[in-house]
């Protein structure tokens, strides 16, 4: 029973991690929280589900639809909410407000386009199998493999490829990156698109896990991802990944051994406790003198 719960928690957590990675990437290059992230990935997941239902498509093409839709929304977000405010004499928090505006528009657009009700994910992966006495749902395994695999790929890409390194350089200092000949505007656009695309995957994976997606899920899941961003340590990718898994496990255990009513309360209490011990987050850096 415990193992099943743990596996369940890690599965949910891996999608939280994927969402938090999106916040982390954008926070890295822009030093700003993207308040529209939750709406972007729910919008994308809904678009994918509606397309699937309409054309009778299987799951895999739906993921491409979700990623493409989220990526386009990400590019739009950068063009209208971030870039115009990236100049001198704009208050630091202005982009925070503009992303909230973007989120509000998406919220309304979703309800206009898809209605406010939940949309069931068609063609769900059914069945389960048993590994050493532990029952594993096929869909959970698929989610886990997809989310963890994607994060491993992302980590390698950021660490090893020239463009990944340019993202790290821009995260550390946009000005230094620029004088080295790195087109920071393009790096930022690519990062926002990448973060949103990953959200597109996470949104649909969550839909698979819950069986349905509703427009209202964007806000709550967005806040969870945001909590994980801070829990892991602002801007730390490994922190976001581990923090997401931790939040998922704590939530599932809270439901299994406590009460589902207090699931979110217990999860956020855990986050508060972590901050009492490590104010900088799990992988956050203590400010050092350079």
């Amino acid at each position: 029973m415990l193992f099943e719960q743990l596996l369940n928690g890690i599965t949910v957590g891996s999608t939280y991690a994927l969402i938090a990675v999106g916040y982390t990437l954008i926070f890295g290059v822009l030093g700003m929280i993207n308040m529209a992230h939750g709406q972007i990935f729910i919008f994308a997941a809904l678009t994918a589900i509606v397309t699937m239902s309409a054309f009778g498509w299987p799951l895999l093409p739906a993921f491409f639809v979700s990623v493409a839709c989220a990526a386009v929304l990400g590019a739009l977000l950068e063009a209208v909410a971030f870039r115009p405010l990236r100049k001198k004499d704009v208050p630091h928090l202005a982009p925070l407000i503009s992303t909230i505006g973007f989120a509000t528009i998406l919220d309304d657009a979703m309800i206009k386009l898809f209605g406010a009700d939940s949309r069931f994910v068609p063609g769900k992966l059914g069945g389960s199998f048993s590994v050493g006495g532990v029952d594993v749902r096929t869909v959970d395994l698929a989610i886990l493999v997809a989310a963890l695999g994607l994060m491993a790929l992302l980590h390698l890409w950021i660490q090893k490829t020239p463009f990944g390194k340019a993202i790290r350089a821009t995260s550390e200092s946009p000005e230094t990156a620029a004088i080295l000949g790195i087109p920071t505007d393009r790096v930022i656009l690519a990062t926002v698109v990448l973060a949103s695309g990953l959200g597109g995957v996470a949104g649909l994976l969550l839909g698979l896990s819950y069986g349905a997606v509703a427009p209202s899920m964007g806000v709550g899941l967005g806040f969870k991802g945001l909590a994980v961003l801070v829990l892991g340590g602002l801007g730390s990718l490994p922190g976001a990944m581990l923090g997401g898994l931790l939040l998922g496990v704590v939530e599932v255990l809270a439901v299994a051994y406590g009460s589902s009513t207090y699931r979110d309360a217990i999860a956020f209490l855990m986050i508060i406790l972590v901050f009492l011990v490590r104010p900088q987050g799990l992988f956050g850096e203590t400010p050092v003198q350079r």
């Binding site: 020239p162 390194k165 340019a166 790290r168 350089a169 550390e172 200092s173 230094t176 990156a177 080295l180 790195i182 350079r290």
Partner: peptide, 12 residues
């Protein structure tokens, strides 16, 4: 770039 290696700084 303090969080990147010497080699990576040069690559940049």
């Amino acid at each position: 770039l303090a969080r990147m290696t010497v080699r990576e700084n040069l690559e940049m």
